[in-house]
Computed example of a mutant assay.
Amino acid sequence: MAAESVSELERLTRKFRPPLIAFFSRRVTGLAEAEDMTQEVFVRLMRTQANIEETSAAYIFRIAANLIKDRARHDLVRRHFADAVRSEGGVGIDPFDPFRIASARESISVLWAAIQALPEPTQQIFILYRVEDIPKQTIADNFGFHLRTVDKHISRALVFLARRMRQQA
């Protein structure tokens, strides 16, 4: 950016900053937000390929009006999302509740300890099938087992893990 356009931008900033802050202050909740939106007007003005010297007040306030519209659209989307979350039956439940996070971590620790306690071929087969998502036939071929044997190992693992999880609860 040339020095002339920087000084012209400074001139525009001095001239339009107070009226823009007043414009935004009437339309947003706080002065800090009005300041941020005023700054965004000048950022957008710098990004345009238009000649800064020929920038009119109408053009600057059109940018400001568009920012207000963008903000309103953004707020509307957030409200719709919040309404959708509330209507899904999770009313009053914070998905990031520290107790729920700690409880889930504890459950995962118990589950992992139970998986580690499985007999060796059952443990490997269970991890390959349930964690790594490898088809039963591939597991059977690699272990040299029949498909029914792999099914039995997976069933035993599930029963063992369910019992362990119930004991810990």
Rank of each mutant, 00 (worst) to 15 (best):
T48P: 01
Q49T: 10
N51P: 01
E53H: 06
E53I: 01
E53N: 05
E54T: 09
E54G: 04
A57Y: 01
A58T: 06
I60T: 06
I60K: 03
I60A: 03
I60D: 03
R62V: 01
R62M: 07
R62N: 11
I63G: 01
A64S: 06
L67E: 11
L67N: 10
K69S: 13
D70L: 04
R71W: 13
R71P: 03
R71I: 02
H74S: 15
D75S: 14
R78Q: 14
H80C: 06
F81G: 08
F81I: 10
D83Q: 11
D83N: 08
V85M: 14
V85S: 12
G92K: 04
D94C: 09
D94L: 03
D94V: 01
F96H: 11
D97C: 07
P98D: 07
F99S: 09
F99Q: 11
E106P: 03
I108Y: 15
W112V: 12
I115C: 12
L118C: 09
L118N: 08
E120D: 15
E120P: 10
P121M: 06
T122P: 05
T122V: 15
Q123F: 05
Q124H: 12
Q124W: 03
I125Y: 05
Y129V: 08
E132D: 12
I134P: 09
K136L: 06
T138P: 04
A140M: 00
A140K: 00
N142H: 10
F143T: 06
G144Y: 00
G144H: 01
G144M: 01
H146V: 00
H146A: 08
L147K: 04
R148N: 05
S155W: 05
